[in-house]
């Protein structure tokens, strides 16, 4: 599903590389933790996968498509099959929970009744179907992250990229969020979850890709 070949990325010419000659493969349906200290290159790796950044060197294939050569007009189509979850949720505060989750489907031009059905199902799945008409700031941090996960899942993504999604949440809430990722993974979605939470990896052991200074230092399944 995801293949990286000798990928290098540095943000400024003279600065040290955020990713340094990184090569790895993630098969379809895999669940992978990306770990490493701050500045290891976890976020950069995810940004390259959803085309927010371009590598300076190397090739990246996603679902058989070389995204390093992809024109900017094709990027939106790649993102329509990619769910993305952030540490800071990135929800629209002026929109209701329903509208936030419906947003990716609206963007894809889906019909209104399709959107309503799908959004309700997903919100029910994450346990927030009772809060459809509330606004993000009326919810707790954990609930907001559930909304963000629902927004990522509503498009039935091929890949789910999560950048420190539980960084701001307590452990009980974290477990609930990871449960949602596991559920998506069980339905066939490839999940890449960037975290430095060792306890999480211990509780839900899956393949771990460890980065340090932009280089792959370990790749193991506990």
């Amino acid at each position: 599903m995801i293949q990286l070949y000798n990928v290098c990325k540095s943000y400024q010419k003279d600065s040290s590389a955020a990713l340094d000659n990184l090569s790895l493969k993630v098969p379809k349906g895999d669940f992978v933790y990306i770990t490493g200290p701050s500045g290891a290159g976890k976020s950069t790796l995810l940004k390259l996968l959803y085309c927010a950044e371009k590598p300076n060197r190397g090739q990246i294939l996603v679902n058989g498509q070389n995204i390093t050569r992809m024109g900017s007009s094709h990027i939106p189509h790649l993102r329509r099959r990619t769910g993305i979850v952030f540490q800071d949720f990135k929800l629209l505060e002026s929109r209701t929970i329903f509208e936030n989750v419906a947003f990716p489907l609206e963007v894809q031009g889906k019909k209104r009744y399709e959107i309503s059905n799908k959004v309700y199902q997903v919100l029910k799945h994450v346990g927030l179907h009772g809060k459809l008409h509330q606004y993000p700031l009326q919810l707790s941090g954990g609930e907001q992250q559930r909304v963000a996960v629902a927004r990522a899942l509503v498009i039935d993504p091929l890949i789910l990229l999560a950048d420190e999604p539980t960084g701001n949440l307590d452990f009980e809430v974290t477990l609930g969020i990871v449960d949602l990722f596991k559920g998506a993974n069980a339905r066939g979605t490839t999940v890449l979850l960037a975290t430095h939470n060792r306890e999480l990896i211990r509780r839900f052991p899956r393949r771990v890709i460890a980065l340090e200074n932009g280089q792959l230092v370990d790749d193991y399944t506990p």
Binding site: Y50, A52, S73, P76, H77, L78, R79, R80, T82, I84, K90, L92, F103, P104, V107, Q108, R151, I155
Partner: peptide, 12 residues
């Protein structure tokens, strides 16, 4: 924020 999120969820 809205513009960024639109781009992230695949808006052209």
């Amino acid at each position: 924020d809205e513009l960024e999120i639109m781009a992230l969820v695949g808006a052209t």
